[in-house]
Design a binder for these strands. Structure first.
Lengths: 196, 196
DNA sequence: CTCTAATGCGAATATGTATTCGCATTCAAT
DNA sequence: ATTGAATGCGAATACATATTCGCATTAGAG
């Protein structure tokens, strides 16, 4: 951030800009999200925008930081693998994932689609680390001598498979494949892969 | 295409423009690939470019049509599931996939990353249909009464899981996860899911 | 060889977007 | 109430990119 907001009004201005960034992403997509548009949506002058942000990228980064917090919080509410069975846990996580992708008018969808040109690492780390920890705990409990290096590979594969299959499905309005079936299939695949 | 090339020189010009589009994508990425740059790389005037193409999008589409042909040809050379075992077939397909992603200086990588804003359907159909046919044949042979609707879900999940996990891995230079391990893991996951 | 349609050119024009800067307004400490 | 710092503004400027059009050149049919 270019300059720290000191007064109340400027802090609110910064918030409204971040909020507006989200709406611009949903309405116009990352490509056509411009600083001018964001300022317009926020009801703020472009000049003011540049007082606090370097540009579009900085705004998106600030937005993603905020969202990463929401995701982390949502993850903490999910059932853990040691209380429920593995299948229930995976199923819950996948349903949570779909719910997130459909929330906020598709904001998350747009962000994940554009992972390769966004500062995705922070968010990805949240997910990656959470699932890593989750599986680590589970496997330490059930298969005490499980090789840990292999676990990293598995978590990488599972996380990306699930995430992008969900995004691909949510991005196309293909009524031929019902979301419930995709969710069930993903659960089958993941549980099978993680336990054999 | 805006106008049909009738003479020899113009046909060659069109080819060189498509070729240049590929190089521009590799060198500058989709975002910074412009009509002017493509014309420059091709050693052609922008004016000539617009004689035959509506703009960037049309050029990329022409390029992808060409590449779809290459992919289809490559797929036909892969071992089929009825001659070899399922595991060998899946393993071969995944290795083929990685090879493609690494070929042409990462052109395919850039294209798949940007699937959501490209006319991907033609290429996706090639893949989808090929694997659909492949699995259909395999399962008709081995499990005569297999439900076909479910197969569509499975192929969708497997195709996207494999493709995007590969792309994600190839996009980051994370030496922690070796490509061979990812390939082996994907094979395990897919074979397990398709046979249980 | 001749001649016309096809081709190729690139400066010029139009548009979209990023970013700044001088001035007006407001806050909050005194 | 006064005043300096903070804030907000948006026209103006700079730059990137898309697209056209009149003119020069060339291919290749006859």
């Amino acid at each position: 951030m270019r300059k720290q907001p000191r007064q109340q009004r400027s802090r609110q201005l910064v918030d409204s800009l971040i909020e507006a960034t989200g709406r611009a992403l949903v309405e116009h997509g990352l490509d056509h999200t411009t600083t001018v548009r964001i300022a317009e949506i926020a009801g703020v002058s472009v000049g003011s925008l540049y007082q606090y942000f370097e540009g579009k990228e900085a705004l998106v980064e600030a937005l993603m930081d905020k969202l990463a917090g929401d995701i982390a919080q949502g993850l903490r509410r999910l059932p853990l693998a040691d209380s429920a069975g593995l299948r229930e846990t995976v199923d819950g996580a996948i349903r949570f994932g779909f719910a997130v992708l459909h929330s906020r008018d598709g904001l998350y969808l747009e962000l994940v689609r554009n992972w390769h040109r966004l500062p995705t690492n922070r968010v990805a780390d949240v997910l990656q680390q959470h699932f890593m920890e989750l599986s680590r705990l589970y496997f330490i409990k059930h298969y005490r001598d499980y090789p840990i290096e292999d676990l990293q590979v598995r978590v990488f594969i599972v996380a990306n498979s699930v995430l992008f299959t969900m995004v691909r499905h949510a991005s196309q309005n293909d009524a031929l494949l019902r979301e419930d079936d995709i969710a069930a299939g993903l659960t089958d695949m993941v549980v099978g892969y993680m336990t054999h």
